[in-house]
Structures are given as structure tokens and as C-alpha cells.
Simulated scan of single mutants.
Amino acid sequence: MNEPVASETYAAQIRRLAELTARVAAQRAEAHTWYAQQCAAADRAVAEAAEQVRRAEAEVAEARELVERVDAEATHLWGELRARVGPSARRLGDPPGPARDASGDPVPLLHGVRQLLDRTRQPGELPGSANPLLVCCGVGGSVVAYALGAGARALGAGSGGDLAVGMPVLALVVTLLGPLVGLAAARLLADRRHAALSPRPIALVVAAGLAATVLLLALPR
């Protein structure tokens, strides 16, 4: 038969069992707390990662939109440049692609190119070196008008009736329009040089044309 256990030993075993039970419960509670903390941290990490992905997708979409807008603006500016160059624009080819080492915001660069094209689109004034050509335009226009007037006078002199009376008047009017003919030639000169026909060139052409017309009318016939 089993020997009876002393009450002191039984009580000690009960206390130890209670201690072990309490320790296991504490460890179990600690494990549950650690697991809950790890799950919360994992949830926060997943939420932060999802937010980072959302921001990255938004940045990618914004960057793609910026690239499309920059490409469209670059193509438009390239077309304006080709229009400014004229017939020799075939040598320019297609718009250049993005540079590999490009950095920074392209919007200010495009704005600078747009301002440069706007400045080149505005015609300047003819330089002083074009003054001899302007004088030639005025004199040439007067000579052409005088020659037409001389032809009209000759036609009137060889005819009778109303032509004999009207042609000299018409010849005088055509001769006096010589400076205006010179202005038409000066306009062509300014257009070829992409310049504006300002008051100074106009005055020079008109003065040269009037002087030539007066000299031609003063010649003996």
C-alpha cells in the first residue's frame, strides 16, 4: 500500500502548482500581448506600405502627365521653329528626344524657348547698312513710274481726241506715284530680311523717290 503523504508536503505541492499555474497564465498573457502588438505593428506597416504605394502611383501618374505635356509642348515649339526657318526646315528633321542626362524641371526651359520664339517672331528694324538699298528702291520706283508716264505721254501724243488730252494727265499722276512704287520694293526688302518697315526707312525711300522724280521732271523733253 502507498504511504500517506504528509500534509506539509501536499500543501507545498499545491502552492508550487498554483505558482506554476500563475506563471503560465502570466506567460500566456504576455504572449497574447506580444502577439497583439506584433499584429498591430504589422497592420500599421501594411497601411504605411499601402499609403506609400498610393503616393508612388500618384507621382507616377503625375510624372506621366508631365511627360506627355512636355512632349506636346516641345513638338508645338519645334513646329513653330520650323515655320520660322522656312523652306530650309527640312534639314531640322523631327523633334529631338529627351536627353539621357537631363535633370531639373523642364517647364521653365520650355517657357524660355517660348519667350525666345516670341522675340524672334517680332520683326526688328532694318539696319543702317540697308540705307543704300532703300535709296535705290526710292530711285528705282521713280524711274519705273517716270518710264510708264513717258510711255503714256507718247501714246497720247500719237493719238487724237480724248487720249491726247487724258494721257498727259495720267502720265503725270503715274510719275508722281514713283515714291509709292519704291515703298513696295522696300517692303519686299524688309520681308526678306524679316524686318519691319519703320518710319525711318519709309522717309528715306520717299525722300529718295521725290528727289529722283523732281530731277526726272526737270529733264528737258
Rank of each mutant, 00 (worst) to 15 (best):
E8C: 01
T9E: 13
Y10S: 12
A12H: 08
Q13C: 03
Q13I: 03
R15A: 13
R16N: 14
A18N: 14
E19C: 00
R23P: 03
Q27V: 11
R28W: 04
A29E: 15
W34M: 08
A40P: 06
V46S: 14
A47P: 06
A47H: 08
E51H: 15
R55Y: 08
E59C: 03
V60C: 00
A61R: 06
E62K: 03
A63V: 02
R64I: 01
R64L: 03
L66R: 00
L66C: 01
D71A: 14
D71P: 00
D71M: 00
A72N: 01
E73Q: 08
H76V: 03
L77A: 01
L77D: 01
G79V: 00
A83E: 14
A83C: 06
G86S: 09
P87L: 11
A89D: 07
A89T: 09
R91C: 10
R91M: 08
D94P: 11
D94I: 05
D94F: 07
P95V: 02
P95E: 02
P95S: 09
G97N: 10
P98V: 02
P98L: 00
A99V: 11
P108D: 07
R114L: 03
Q115R: 15
L117T: 10
L117E: 15
R119A: 10
Q122E: 12
P123D: 09
P123K: 10
G124R: 09
G128I: 03
P132R: 12
P132L: 11
C136V: 15
C136D: 03
C136I: 15
G138F: 11
G138S: 10
A145S: 15
A145R: 07
Y146D: 14
Y146K: 04
Y146V: 02
A147E: 08
L148K: 00
G149C: 14
R153L: 09
A154K: 03
G160F: 04
G161L: 04
V165D: 06
V165K: 15
G166P: 01
L170A: 14
L170Y: 08
V173N: 07
V173P: 05
G178A: 09
P179R: 06
L183I: 15
A190L: 08
A190P: 05
R192A: 14
R193P: 00
H194L: 11
A195L: 03
S198M: 05
R200Q: 13
P201S: 04
I202F: 01
A203M: 15
A203Q: 11
V205F: 10
G209W: 05
L210E: 14
L210K: 01
L210I: 11
A211S: 15
L215S: 14
L217V: 13
L217G: 14
A218Y: 05
L219F: 09
L219P: 02
L219H: 04
P220V: 02
R221L: 11
